[in-house]
């Protein structure tokens, strides 16, 4: 069975843990509880008779209290950069995290995840603002950890690619 290490990266409060929880356990909590350190979840995905085991490294949000640790990217086949569509600053910080991650692991696939699409698309930024960054990423997903929208798609993409 193929095993793939996937890293969940991004600023604080964008919903990294909620996305993993929704995908692995199918649950969502409205309460914001900040993550500390790293938590690894495993999930097996099957398609057309082939099985992939995803090792999901959910990491503490990167901010002034927690720096970026390049060690965690070692051996990752893909990493998600997760941003919050209700917070413009999260896009700015997410792009900074992307640059650090790309430097730490030049080979891994990078996937941009714009989370919280269930919330009203606030005025602060529109999808057109992502255009300059889109070509850095293998794919872009617009997700809601709350409703589950596109959550399975994003993880299946890193498990099997576009095929």
């Amino acid at each position: 069975m193929i095993q793939k290490k996937i890293c969940m990266l991004g600023p604080t409060g964008v919903g990294k843990t909620s996305l993993v929880k929704q995908y692995v356990e199918g649950i969502f909590s409205e309460k914001y509880l900040t993550s500390i350190g790293v938590k690894i979840d495993k999930k097996q995905v099957e398609r057309n008779g082939s099985t992939v085991q995803l090792m999901l490294w959910d990491m503490e949000g990167i901010d002034r209290y927690c720096g970026f640790n390049p060690r965690y990217l070692r051996g990752a086949s893909s990493f998600f950069i997760i941003v919050d569509q209700t917070r413009y600053q999260s896009l700015v910080e997410g792009i900074e995290v992307y640059q650090l991650a790309r430097e730490a692991n030049p080979k891994a696939h990078a996937v941009l995840v714009v989370n919280k699409v269930d919330l009203p698309a606030t005025s602060h930024w529109s999808r057109s603002e992502l255009e300059p960054y889109e070509n850095h990423f293998a794919n872009v997903f617009y997700t809601s950890a709350k409703t589950g929208e596109s959550v399975e798609d994003m993880f299946e993409f890193v498990a099997f690619g576009e095929s």
Binding site: T12, G13, Y32, L33, T34, I36, G61, D63, R64, Y65, C66, R87, Y88, Q89, S90, T122, S123, H124, W125
Partner: peptide
């Protein structure tokens, strides 16, 4: 976790202000 929970809630509030300015 207890300390950073409060600290990050404050950071998110500040982000909202910066986002408002940007808009």
């Amino acid at each position: 976790q207890s300390v950073l929970q409060s600290a990050r809630e404050v950071l998110l509030e500040h982000d909202e202000i910066v986002g408002e300015h940007e808009y």
